[in-house]
């Protein structure tokens, strides 16, 4: 597989949210606004790429028997790094994302990439895989959060994009909206990929 294919694979064919449906908690919870969705997406890219790099560098050193605990420690360390940096430099975003920043550590996507890719491939490929999967995650977050903020608040990035006469569909930024809109988005992706095949 060449580098471009690895990257494209993560963004489209195996998109973590829209196709594999892993790491759902944060996806549903923080996509109430576009800014939060992008912030979370970037945090996940950082942890995923960082842990992919370290794990692929250490793959000869980590024995098979203890690879899972070793992955968990490395992922937790990167999560804490992101947590501390956001706490110090992007405080408003840190407060908005709350408990979902430390919870990146249990995002199944990251452990799955460590096990399925980084532990078996070289550093460069692992970086590309991390970025590809991460960007795929970010794209899905952007899609979901922009639809939710647009319908639920009439804004994008907090700026009004609809006339004042628009009555916001509150349900879109409340919990039910997260489930329903994500369900419909996945349905749309299924539909498009089926049409492409046919």
């Amino acid at each position: 597989m060449n580098k471009l294919d690895i990257f494209k694979n993560g963004v489209t064919k195996e998109n973590p949210i829209l196709v594999q449906q892993v790491g759902m908690c944060a996806t549903l919870a923080v996509t109430t606004s576009l800014l939060n969705g992008i912030g979370m997406g970037i945090a996940v890219i950082a942890v995923l790429t960082g842990s992919n790099i370290v794990i692929s560098l250490l793959r000869k050193f980590i024995p098979d028997e203890v690879r899972i605990p070793a992955f968990v420690i490395i992922i937790a360390a990167f999560t804490t790094i992101v947590d501390l940096l956001m706490h110090a430099y992007t405080f408003a975003l840190y407060q908005a994302l709350g408990v979902f920043i430390p919870l990146i550590v249990v995002n199944c996507l990251i452990l799955a990439r460590a096990e399925a890719f980084a532990f078996k491939n070289g550093v460069v490929d692992s970086i590309v895989d991390g970025l590809g999967m991460g960007v795929g995650y970010l794209v899905a977050m952007i899609l979901l959060s922009s639809v939710r903020e647009f319908l639920g608040n009439g804004t994008l990035f907090g700026i009004n994009v609809l006339p004042a006469s628009y009555e916001p569909m509150m349900i879109a930024i409340q919990p039910p909206g997260a489930f329903i809109i994500l369900g419909l988005l996945i349905g749309l992706v299924n539909y498009l990929s089926r049409r492409k095949k046919a």
């Binding site: 449906q21 349900i171 919990p175 039910p176 909206g177 997260a178 489930f179 329903i180 994500l182 369900g183 419909l184 996945i186 349905g187 749309l188 299924n190 539909y191 089926r194």
Partner: peptide, 20 residues
């Protein structure tokens, strides 16, 4: 159901209705 909505798509919508 329409083929595209089967599986997790419709499950999420159902979860949304329960959340309401």
């Amino acid at each position: 159901l329409p083929e595209s909505l089967k599986g997790s798509a419709i499950s999420l919508v159902a979860a949304g209705l329960m959340s309401i």
